[in-house]
Design a protein around this nucleic acid. Structure first.
Ligand SMILES: [Mn+2]
Ligand SMILES: [Mn+2]
Ligand SMILES: [Zn+2]
Ligand SMILES: [Zn+2]
Lengths: 138, 138
DNA sequence: GCTTGACTTAGACATTGTCTATTGTAGGAT
DNA sequence: ATCCTACAATAGACAATGTCTAAGTCAAGC
């Protein structure tokens, strides 16, 4: 995620302790945290960081295309740092665990013209749901 | 939607003016209202209906499998009375218009075992995004 | 027509997200 | 190295969405 900080610096971002911490929290594989979860983990590293700053920073990262908002959770938005490799999601209906997945085929090709109602279709979001190994064992 | 009311009566539901009105509001094609929108429209027909009753009734309908919760909107949940014919959704990114669509092919088959991480996958939700004819014209 | 348990209601409370006025500071200018 | 200032962070009010409870109401069986 340090390349992210580099890119942002190049775009005129002022580098602050808060922004660095948010970027650090978002680092990793299969990371899909809510804003509140990002805040909790950020507070662990920088106790005085505010909720507003976390929301602001996440919003900026989304605007810049560095982070995606995903709606796998029906309550809070989740923030996905894996914005540069297209993928979809597999969600455990019990515990909420989320994995990045790469299905074969192109779902866009599966939507015939007769089902497009005159829309210009530019994007598709696929969410698989099921039960993860942990929850199946229990 | 009157067959819905019949089914519910058969399941021991007490039939009240409030429940009838919520069912009426949910009647129709391509209906995907938020709880608040359901409440507004219900109030137009039955001014004293409360927010709590709308939430309760929607929750019951979801539990009974008569209505689906869909997450096409990143803010509020939307309630979909078209629960008996599987389908997916096409959403206008500008105005939020939603259409039911029926893609060809089975996206479940497009998720190889190597991408299932030991999950038992039971369901898939596909959301197409684009621009509707109205918004394209403007 | 009663009775009763299921239903509805108002409003408090919880969670998630947005906004503003004030204070602080990163980073360029001197 | 210090100063300046525009940009950023903060606290907390506010808004939107959703949940819960205690008290009153009524549908439906008797
Ligand atoms: Mn992801
Ligand atoms: Mn639908
Ligand atoms: Zn699980
Ligand atoms: Zn539109």
């Amino acid at each position: 995620m340090s390349d992210l900080l580099e890119r942002l610096r190049g775009r005129g971002w002022r580098m602050t302790a808060q922004r660095r911490v948010v970027a650090e929290v978002l680092d990793g594989e299969h990371v899909h945290l809510t804003a509140d979860e990002v805040h909790s983990r950020a507070v662990a590293r920088l106790p005085e960081i505010s909720r507003a700053t976390v929301y602001n920073t996440l919003g900026e990262l989304v605007s810049l295309g560095e982070v995606l908002e995903v709606a796998t959770d029906k309550r809070a938005k989740r923030y996905d740092p894996n914005a540069h490799r297209p993928h979809h999601h597999l969600v455990c209906a019990q515990c909420g665990a989320i994995r990045d997945v790469h299905p074969t085929g192109n779902p866009l090709a599966d939507l015939p013209d007769s089902e497009r109602f005159g829309f210009t279709v530019s994007d598709v979001e696929v969410t698989y749901r099921g039960t993860c190994p942990n929850c199946a064992a229990a």
